[in-house]
Design a protein around this nucleic acid. Structure first.
Lengths: 338, 338
DNA sequence: CGCGTTTACTAAACCGGTTTACGTGCTTGT
DNA sequence: ACAAGCACGTAAACCGGTTTAGTAAACGCG
């Protein structure tokens, strides 16, 4: 394969000239320029990106670390980031952690080693100090969707509190006074915020006597199924509505409720969160809080690129994207107690 | 940041020694080895990957080109490839073409320029000669899921013909004699194979008088909605069953049928293809041909790594993965004609 | 003692770009 | 006629590894 030297020789100039001509730091008379162009075409020259990167000290690549690519939420997020990266002429190196903290650390080390120019980091479990320390020393980096408390980097979230609030009000307005919240453990800031908003919204309408139960766990199908099974097994004083705070939880929950012969919303009302999957086709279509996932991806990259010159004095930017309530058919009045 | 030279100086040896020691091409007495280890720890040395890649001429990165990452089918596929790549210590550069042929060409050019060590290429539309030519000169490369006819590279598909066959037989056995096939245009080999199998399966049970209609188009929600609306608008001699050959088509179709007030499977039976999304939660749960998508991803990478020494004499390997029929509740007997 | 072998290591070239700092040779102004 | 200035470039260092082809010193052995 032809290199810069070959082109230079073929065009009768030095490789400095070719290099500088190609990246615009040198004006050349038409004749010389054409000779170089011709040589490039004839030799089918393409610059070697590895040499380029070594020389320039950057890779025009950013890394994206997410818990799981197959999940619709993250898949959509990744798609949005990729689209934006492509627009900026950047490549995307994709890594899935599958929620294993050791993997997160490994990837962060790789980033620091200069593999990439920047990092968009998404985790799915409670952050810890070790992780935060790595993030702080990882170079240009943003944290998205789930907070890592001690990380001093730009952050981008959906307005989880507002989402919880909307759901709480909505269920209370539908008449529910005893509800079940299924969601992440309290150490997960997104989960805590959703719960806090939910409680606030519910109590604002239903008052202090309203009863909120909470089932903690991961945002997985299995956790949804579990919670659904436990719910279905109860025979008395059962909540009349469930707020399942991710698409996966809703799907698992629907499965379990269906298996147990419970009909939504006749026997129990259900609200979802995320609304990325085709929740409108479920039986019945799921009323849910929708996260603007594509926007999240787009903004994540913008934030990363903007954040390049990090000012250690002032705290990094933290952006909040609005959520919306999508009304469908999975919420009704509470069933009449027999 | 410390480099090899710094480490060498600190350990009192030459950088050759450090380099060779680190990659195992040199045995050192314990004392020297320890001096080097200590220097590395003290300076927090990590090798510069760009220099490494330039020197070695490889990047330990493979590129994955898919039409759209957000679609559950490709998302799952990407997840499977990423998992396998990680196992092999390879990075993954992800690119979405969004079905734009110019993008496909652009990415293939980048690959050829040495960006990556290998390429897994997935397209979603009929291939053409220009694309095939690029693939043939792109270096190590495999084509997955949808064929690119003239490309002489290893290929990996699901057994589309068998999938069509299973669906055809199944609908015929349920009593259907007039069916609608919604799927890719005939130039798409996957679509053509599914149709051929479908026809064969149906006729094997229902005989030559069975009537098959075909609605060609892309594998998109919109195409599914369109086909569904056209179907619903017909008042007489309407097919009694529909075979929608992708998850997206099924979803769009379900939407349109629901809007038109048609009930599945009372008014019309539906079969799907892919079965990656949560089709079991739709109303009613969709009977579908399931593609082994994760297996497809895993095998794609294996095939790529195996194929490294390409032998120009014999034709490249072509693997076919089996599909299965997942029976649910969207197929019933044909409605009685009023 | 002298010669071959092993041990322990290294100088320098190489990968293929980018960049700094410095010529040439020709025109122009005075 | 001579310096200044411009147009048109270039030599060589640099990025940070890997690798080839050695060398110097110690050691074993007849």
């Amino acid at each position: 394969m032809a290199n810069l030297q070959d082109v230079a020789k073929a065009a009768g100039v030095s490789k400095t000239t070719v290099s500088r001509y190609l990246n615009g730091s040198l004006e050349l008379p038409a004749k010389t320029a054409e000779a170089i162009d011709a040589a490039i075409r004839r030799l089918e020259y393409v610059p070697n990106p590895h040499a380029r990167r070594l020389s320039l000290g950057r890779s025009d690549t950013i890394a994206l670390v997410v818990p799981d690519i197959a999940s619709p939420f993250f898949a959509t997020f990744v798609a949005a980031v990729e689209a934006e990266a492509d627009k900026q002429g950047l490549s995307l190196a994709l890594h899935a952690t599958l929620n294993r903290p050791d993997r997160e650390i490994t990837y962060l080390d790789r980033i620091r080693q200069g593999h990439v120019d920047g990092l968009i980091f998404v985790t799915n479990h409670a952050g810890n100090a070790a992780l935060a320390a790595k993030l702080n020393s990882a170079g240009p980096c943003v944290v998205v969707d789930e907070d890592v408390a001690e990380a001093r980097v730009p952050k981008l979230f959906c307005d989880n509190e507002q989402g919880g609030y909307l759901a709480g009000r909505y269920l209370a307005e539908a008449g529910h006074r005893h509800v079940l919240f299924i969601g992440g453990i309290d150490q997960m800031i997104s989960g805590a915020r959703r719960f806090r908003g939910f409680e606030r919204g519910l109590r604002e309408v239903a008052g202090e006597t309203a009863k909120i139960e909470r089932s903690c766990g991961t945002y997985t199908f299995e956790a949804g199924r579990e919670a659904g099974r436990r719910f279905a097994a109860r025979t008395q004083a059962r909540p009349t509505a469930i707020f399942a705070t991710s698409d996966e939880l809703v799907i698992g929950l629907y499965e379990a409720l269906g298996e147990a012969g419970l009909v939504v919303p006749r026997d129990v009302s259900v609200m979802g969160f995320d609304d990325v999957g085709p929740l409108h086709l479920f039986a019945p279509a799921v009323t849910a809080i929708r996260q603007p996932v594509r926007e999240l991806g787009k903004r994540a990259l913008e934030l990363l690129l903007d954040a390049r010159p990090v000012d250690p004095a002032k705290p990094p930017a933290e952006a909040l994207l609005p959520v919306t309530l999508v009304e469908r058919h999975s919420v009704g009045p509470p069933p009449v107690v027999p």
